[in-house]
Amino acid sequence: MARAVSTRRKWIATAAAWVVALVIFFPIFYMVVTSLKTEPEAIAGISLIPSGTFENYVEVQTQRDYFKPFLNSVIISLGSTLIALLIAIPAAWSMAFSPTRRTKDILMWMLSTKMMPAVGVLVPMFLIFRDTGLLDTRIGLTVVLTLINLPIVVWMLYTYFREIPGEILEAARMDGATLMGEIVYVLTPMAVPGIASTMLLNIILAWNEAFWSIRLSAANAAPLTAFIASFSSPQGLFWAKLSAASTLAIAPILIMGWFSQRQLVRGLTFGAVK
């Protein structure tokens, strides 16, 4: 009897969960569907079955040079992630394995830099970029995104490194391992998963960053966020093309995101929820 009740409960919960999930996902689904419609079809009222044309994807490239902002997004998000990792790995490392009395204060202070609202420094950043010629360059955006995400990267790596038991290092040292040996043979293999998921999350955050990348870029260095935002004005009602461009813009990140759900929780809560 109890089993029958719980099976029924499972079915009810399943139905409810699926309905809610589909409603939440609907805008994304509808965007993909619209991207496969012709322009007249796209505004002809709700229909979930497109005529299945890939023309929009072709036209986004031929008419609006989609590949350029895509390449900018790739370069900026990968570049800023790699630089952030290069700076953050030694920092997180030293804080996790040889903490001093100030380590906690430094970590908290790094977190506090993340709290600074971007608009608070919009004016000086704009003026600095204008005067140094960094405005609308990929280098400029890469630097800004590196700095913005650096605290999260340090924190995430720190929480991962901290879980590597110190006794293993001590044992390696007792066995005569040098610092290099310790790094190459003991720590790196244990740290790789943490570094990989930190990297994944940071790429997602950099890819989707939509304040600095819109404000500090124009035709040259505009990543996809700026490209899509500019779509709104001149393209007007070209929804099918807009949908195609949007689908292409979010697809890689959506897939990466699905694989990094757990790490996301940890990274975005600074290790406060695991």
């Binding site: 805008p27 989707n208 779509f231 959506l254 699905w258 996301l264």
Partner: peptide
């Protein structure tokens, strides 16, 4: 359920506004 979080803000806003 998690997907909307990975949609960049301009895309999210434009899907909702238009479609």
């Amino acid at each position: 359920v998690i997907s909307p979080f990975f949609v960049m803000p301009p895309v999210a806003a434009l899907i909702w506004k238009n479609m």
